[in-house]
């Protein structure tokens, strides 16, 4: 925008936002309703006016799904080794270090065991804010180890996906994590242990094309973007607009790829009931 300058400041989009004290309030991006953080947390980060599901991370999902203080994290400090010494406009190792600092996370998934309405389960939760929830060696390895543990301890596996897909900066090794996690799920299935995939906004690319689509049941949160190819790529390829509601949870339900769309408030009980019915 170097070639022109606004002569006078007649619109200031920031002014209204600044009325709110920082960090205490959040605005629903669908209906613009404003909530106090505490209020939002109580409502499991769902807008009480329009039912919009805010994007949340592993810390919040652990609260949503597991009994209080029952989560025991495993392989917490496993982190990226930058196997390709990758550099684009920035060194991958610097990018990782920066994101680790800003998010307080080690990578885009956290794994562990915990109790869900008293039942022991193995849980993996992805964090979209860690490089778009992308899957590199760490995500693949942590999920693989979680499944190994589930097989050993005879636990059901639940994976909450929120991911842009495989991580570019680990090249083919990221791609192979799709095969690795799927192969482990095949072994879990041979043991007749249940696997529940929960797809949240957004779940795309290599994550959808591996463990996220392989649940014994696939559950999606309402109105999540769930796709293989992202909408922008498809639009570019076919050169026309996409139909309304394309690649939403409801769209996938209609086309037979999701078993049920469940609001966040019902998530824990739905999974719990399913596990009870198949046990």
């Amino acid at each position: 925008m170097a070639w022109f300058k606004r002569s006078k400041q007649n619109i200031d989009p920031e002014s209204r936002k600044n009325d709110l004290p920082d960090g205490l309030w959040e605005k629903c991006s669908e209906c613009a309703e404003i909530f106090h953080k505490k209020q939002l947390e109580q409502n499991l980060w769902v807008c009480s006016k329009c039912q919009f599901h805010f994007r949340i991370g592993s810390a919040e999902y652990i609260k949503v799904l597991l009994d209080d203080d029952s989560f025991k994290e495993i392989n917490k400090k496993v982190r990226s080794a930058d196997p390709l010494q990758f550099t684009d406009t920035k060194k991958y190792s610097d990018r990782i270090a920066g994101v680790m600092k800003s998010t307080g996370l080690y990578d885009a998934v956290r794994t562990g065991t915990g109790k869900m309405n008293g039942r022991e389960v193995a849980l993996a939760c992805m964090d979209f804010k860690f490089i778009g929830g992308s899957m590199g060696s760490v995500v693949g390895e942590k999920i693989a180890r979680l499944i190994d543990k589930a097989i050993k301890s005879k636990l059901p596996v639940i994976i909450i996906s929120a991911s842009g897909g495989a991580r570019m900066m680990e090249g083919a090794l990221s791609l192979m994590q799709m095969a690795k996690t799927s192969a482990k799920l095949a072994m879990l299935s041979e043991e007749k242990l249940p696997y529940i995939s929960v797809l949240t906004d957004p779940t795309t690319g290599g994550t959808t094309a591996s463990f996220a689509m392989l649940g014994d049941i696939n559950i999606a949160e309402p109105k999540a973007l769930i796709a293989f190819a992202g909408p922008r790529v498809i639009k570019q390829t076919i050169g026309r607009d996409l139909p309304p509601g394309f690649q939403t949870s409801e769209f996938l339900l209609e086309h037979g790829f999701i078993d049920t769309v469940v609001s966040r408030k019902e998530l824990k009980n739905t999974i719990s009931t399913f596990l009870e019915l198949v046990s």
Partner: peptide, 13 residues
């Protein structure tokens, strides 16, 4: 292929 029908019929799945 990244197309509408491919997504409808479950490319990822």
């Amino acid at each position: 292929y990244p197309g509408i029908e491919a997504e409808e019929r479950g490319q990822a799945e």
